[in-house]
Design a protein around this nucleic acid. Structure first.
Length: 285
DNA sequence: GGAAACCTGAGC
DNA sequence: GCTCAGGTTTCC
């Protein structure tokens, strides 16, 4: 579930929690999140955090003594801090601090990933090397966006979610950015004008900035109970577009549900609407 | 390009 | 009971 804003928020929380503290003990349950690695390797994490960087949806931890950890939250992963002894549902791995707090990695669906390794090797890992430009870490302007996506023959939204081209956008923020830019998700990258690349680059930054604002506080906002949908089109199928009142549509694209406003995001600029398969989806909240 | 896989919970 | 989920990988 988490996209760039949620992962960045997790990074900031972790830095705050670990600032001036020492990990006195680390331990983990055997679980899928370790993939190739072993829980015992996680237990070798110790001491102070030297740095915590984010690339796309990955977190790269460097601890003293050269130990490193690559983390990905998958769909349901999150880091939470609790006092020693307080249980956390689906806790898979824990960092015990000298302050008496415990940082848990909790993950119900186990799509996440924890990979302990030598810190010097973090950026050599295939998963990290394969990542494209990160809009926040590396910056992203219209030219860089076009360079990353322009060669793709996939639909624009599918290309936007390709982590090897630009990293950090997921299903929500890709849809939100396209709405902000007034671009239909099924447009082909090759058809975009320089002005449209410009709008899209701006829209990506705006969407991510909005997502970050929503992530204040220590608990992931998307898990808050009764949280209302604050997005512009995501999850709003059938409801009125905030800009023009036309009902928001949803359809499937690259195996994922896409939301867009057919009025604000014309399928083919200058042409009649086309044939993108759409289905009248029920609302979600 | 699409579907299926990996998992569990929430919602209807 | 069935469908869907903000991710990624793998296999037709």
């Amino acid at each position: 579930m988490p996209e760039l804003p949620e992962v960045e928020s997790a990074r900031r929380n972790l830095v705050h929690w670990l600032d001036g503290r020492r990990v006195v003990r680390a331990e983990a349950d055997a679980s899928r999140v370790f993939r190739g690695a072993r829980p015992e390797d996680f237990a070798s994490l110790r001491g102070r955090l030297k740095s915590l960087e984010r690339r796309g949806k990955y977190l790269l931890f460097t601890f003293e003594k050269g130990r490193g950890l690559l983390a990905h939250l998958g769909m349901t992963g999150r880091f939470v801090r609790r006092p020693e002894g307080v249980p956390v549902p689906y806790s898979r791995a824990r960092l015990h601090l000298d302050s008496g707090s415990v940082i848990h990695y909790a993950d119900s669906r186990l799509f996440g990933r924890l990979e302990p390794c030598d810190a010097s090797r973090l950026y050599e890992l295939e998963a990290v090397k394969a990542l494209g430009r990160d809009p926040l870490v590396d910056g992203l302007n219209a030219e860089q966006l076009q360079e990353a996506l322009g060669s793709s023959r996939q639909d624009l939204k599918v290309a936007l979610m390709d982590q090897g081209r630009v990293t950090g956008l997921g299903n929500i923020h890709a849809a939100e950015a396209l709405f902000r830019a007034g671009l239909h998700p099924a447009r082909k990258p090759a058809s975009l004008t320089p002005e449209e690349w410009e709008r899209l680059a701006d829209a990506i930054h705006a969407s991510l900035a909005f997502g970050l604002e929503e992530q204040q506080g220590e608990e992931p906002a998307y898990l808050e109970e009764g949280a209302e949908n604050r997005f512009l089109v995501y999850g709003r199928a059938g409801t009125a577009c905030a800009r023009c009142g036309t009902p928001v549509e949803s359809f499937t694209q690259g195996g994922r549900t896409t939301h867009c406003c057919p009025q604000c995001q014309p399928p083919h600029p200058g042409r009649k609407p086309s044939d993108a398969r759409r289905k009248r989806a029920s609302h979600r909240r």
